[in-house]
Design a protein around this nucleic acid. Structure first.
Lengths: 260, 260
DNA sequence: CGTTTAGTTGAGCATGCTCAACGGTCGTGG
DNA sequence: CCACGACCGTTGAGCATGCTCAACTAAACG
């Protein structure tokens, strides 16, 4: 086997693999290999054929797309996430580019292995359908977030989501540089600054990548998080192990960090 | 059987059903029924549980979502299209509302029937995965269309896509009221008017729902349609029957009319 | 004929972007 | 140890895109 057992273990319990038989799993990952890339490596280009399903095991990967000299960030993936599943299932070209934001460990499994496992096993195929459905719904949420909220509201909701993920503390650490966060939220770095400034009234104070919350209720009143847009609702279920497959999922793969 | 054979026939050759066995198909559609709704009927509400997979057989259906008194149109479906597949696969709540735009014939099949067919047959399950992957990719295209293009560019590309669908003629008929088209393209009716006016320079002239093209090359130069955003490229393949599953597909189901 | 509705046009405004200047931090090299 | 440069982040000014509101036209329908 060309990949470390530890890597296998890490994806074994992720999303669509976690309930399949060992034999199906073995088929699906046959020919997989692990690779480490430096920061700024382009793994995938918009419009090019896709031969592998990717898993981010360490580091982070940005998914983006461009047109006519404009560029937009679609998502940022952190461990453990998959990406480009849809293109692999359809055997077609990528619709977005993927670039490492830092030194990253990536597991690549041949598309044909995955498809073979799907064709051979209905349970597994169903699980992949569920994963794709969850990704689809993540995208729908992202579109709604983007079209129905202005930049300040998106930031406010991002912060509320992050507090939910970070133990509901009165203080969180931003997981990205602010420029990256701005891209994620669909705004310029300048406007992110201004959005943070506006949230002062709601008791939000920033220094470096630490954000403190003085008036969480006021922030939530502005953010007005909604179950049909945001995905941090069943947080309490995380503890008892009954979390739905959909929980905390982005639009592109498991454990995706907030979209836009 | 509670539904007319003609309705069955119409979905038998659509997307994920067209290559499955009769027995699988029979399982999938067991308990299905056909219903006709007047204009303005709400079929599905944002946040409510979903029990059926829907097919639009006649008329048209708008998918929309709202938050804090804002509303946005996500897609408009025309025959023959499916919708809400992702929620059915995951047995979860709808993320968008569905409303008839006119008197419409809708076929509803119980979610459990579909899921049972998927669990029993890997081929079928794979086909559903392909459908979901295609829907996902339609949404990615929609997001890119929306974030990378301004309103005039979106209209220009919409028009180019429509000409491709309408025989590449120098004149097309708009399939919707302009207010509906505006919602579809993510702008106000006022701005749609202005966008049409701007396209005068590119030889576009409108009267009623007839749009004529004087300088198709100029329009295309402005629109700059791209294979990774627009989906009218493999048009030629339609004729020889080798059209990819993905062709002319929107983000929410088969035969969806342009998203955004 | 009025009445209604779709569409257009104009004026003013809001959100968000660009460009430019400036401050603060960190790492490097003198 | 300090000086310098590179880079991130912030702030301000001006501009562009798109929205709202209102008036007006034209076609459809009673």
């Amino acid at each position: 086997m060309s990949i470390k057992q530890s890597s296998i273990d890490r994806i074994r319990h992720v999303s669509f693999f976690n309930k399949c038989d060992d034999s199906v799993f073995k088929t699906a990952v046959s020919g997989a290999f692990l690779q480490t890339f430096p920061e700024g490596t382009t793994l995938l280009i918009d419009g090019e054929p896709v031969d592998f399903l990717y898993f981010v095991l360490e580091g982070s990967v940005e998914l983006s797309a461009g047109w006519k000299s404009k560029d937009t960030t679609l998502a940022i993936l952190r461990p453990v996430s998959t990406f480009i599943l849809a293109a692999v299932v359809m055997e077609s070209d990528a619709l977005m580019s993927a670039t490492t934001l830092e030194r990253s460990e990536v597991l690549m499994i041949p598309g044909e292995s995955l498809r073979r496992a799907m064709r051979e096993n209905a349970q597994f195929s169903f699980a992949v359908s569920e994963e794709l459905a969850a990704c689809y719904r993540g995208l729908v949420r992202a579109i709604k977030n983007h079209k129905l909220r202005d930049s300040t509201e998106r930031l406010a909701n991002y912060l509320v989501t992050q507090t939910a993920r970070q133990d509901n503390a009165a203080q969180i650490t931003l997981p990205h540089e602010k420029r990256v966060l701005a891209a994620l939220l669909g705004m310029t770095p300048e406007n992110l600054s201004r959005a943070f400034a506006k949230l002062n009234k709601q008791g939000v104070s920033v220094s470096g990548n630490i954000v403190k919350f003085d008036k969480m209720d006021a922030l939530k009143r502005l953010a007005r998080p909604a179950p049909t847009i945001d995905n941090h609702y069943k947080q309490s279920e995380q503890l008892d192990g009954k979390a739905s497959t959909e929980r905390q999922r982005g639009g592109h793969g498991t454990e995706t960090d907030a979209i836009y």
